[in-house]
C-alpha cells in the first residue's frame, strides 16, 4: 500500500508539472491575443483553463498522496507553510510555495467575475514565479529529479515556455488599444 502511495505521489507530481507547463504555454498564447493556427482565441482560453484545472487535480493528488504516505513524512502544516519539512526542507519548501501560489491563482480565477479583472491579473502574474519554483522543487526534491529522463523533460519544458514567450513578444501583434495606438504613431 505504502509503495503505491509513494509511486502515485511521484508520478502525479511529474504529470502535474507537465500539465502546468502546458498551462503556462497556453496562457502565454492566450495572452498574445492571436488565434493559434486554426484554433480560435476562445478555444485557446478554454484549453488553457481545462489544462489548469487538470494540472491542479494532479497537484492535489501529488500533495494528498504524500501527506498520507508514511515514508514522505509530510505534515499538513508542510502543505501550507514552506520550509518546515524534515527532508530537504528548502526544496520541499519551494513546492509548498508553488502550491500556495497555485491555490491563490486558481481561487482568483474562479472568482474572476467577482473580484474584477485587475485583481485577477495581478494574482495571475504570480504564475511566472510559480512555474519556475515548481520546476526547481521537482529538480531539487524529486526522487527522479536528477534522472536523465527528468532532466530532458525539464529542458523541454523550459524551451517550450521560452519559445512561447519569444513568440508572444516577437511582434507587436498584441490586440490591445495600446499597440493599435503605437501602430498609428
Amino acid at each position: 500500500m505504502d509503495n503505491t502511495l509513494w509511486a502515485l505521489g511521484r508520478v502525479s507530481g511529474i504529470v502535474s508539472l507537465i500539465l502546468f507547463t502546458g498551462t503556462v504555454v497556453l496562457g502565454i498564447l492566450t495572452r498574445s491575443g492571436r488565434p493559434l493556427l486554426s484554433i480560435p482565441r476562445y478555444s485557446l482560453t478554454l484549453i488553457h483553463r481545462n489544462f489548469a484545472l487538470l494540472a491542479t487535480i494532479f497537484l492535489a493528488l501529488h500533495v494528498g498522496t504524500l501527506v498520507l504516505d508514511s515514508f514522505a513524512k509530510l505534515t499538513v502544516a508542510d502543505v501550507v507553510v514552506p520550509f518546515l519539512g524534515s527532508y530537504r526542507p528548502f526544496w520541499q519548501g519551494l513546492g509548498t510555495v508553488a502550491f500556495d501560489l497555485v491555490v491563490a491563482v486558481v481561487v482568483t480565477s474562479l472568482l474572476r467575475r467577482r473580484i474584477g479583472v485587475r485583481a485577477f491579473r495581478a494574482v495571475h502574474w504570480f504564475t511566472y514565479a510559480m512555474w519556475p519554483i515548481a520546476l526547481a522543487h521537482a529538480l531539487g526534491n524529486g526522487t527522479d529529479g536528477t534522472s536523465k529522463f527528468f532532466l530532458m523533460l525539464a529542458i523541454c519544458s523550459l524551451i517550450s515556455v521560452g519559445a512561447a514567450l519569444v513568440w508572444r513578444f516577437s511582434t507587436n501583434f498584441l490586440e490591445t488599444a495600446k499597440t493599435r495606438q503605437e501602430e498609428l504613431q
Binding site: 491575443g33 488565434p35 480560435p40 482560453t45 490586440e175 488599444a177
Partner: peptide, 23 residues
C-alpha cells in the same frame, strides 16, 4: 470602456458580431 477588441466574442458569435477597422 472595458472592451479592448480582443476578438473572442466575435469568434463565438460570428453571425452577430464582426470586427471594425480596429478590431
Amino acid at each position: 470602456t472595458r472592451c479592448d477588441g480582443r476578438g473572442l466574442c466575435t469568434e463565438l458569435l460570428p453571425t452577430l458580431l464582426g470586427r471594425d477597422d480596429w478590431g
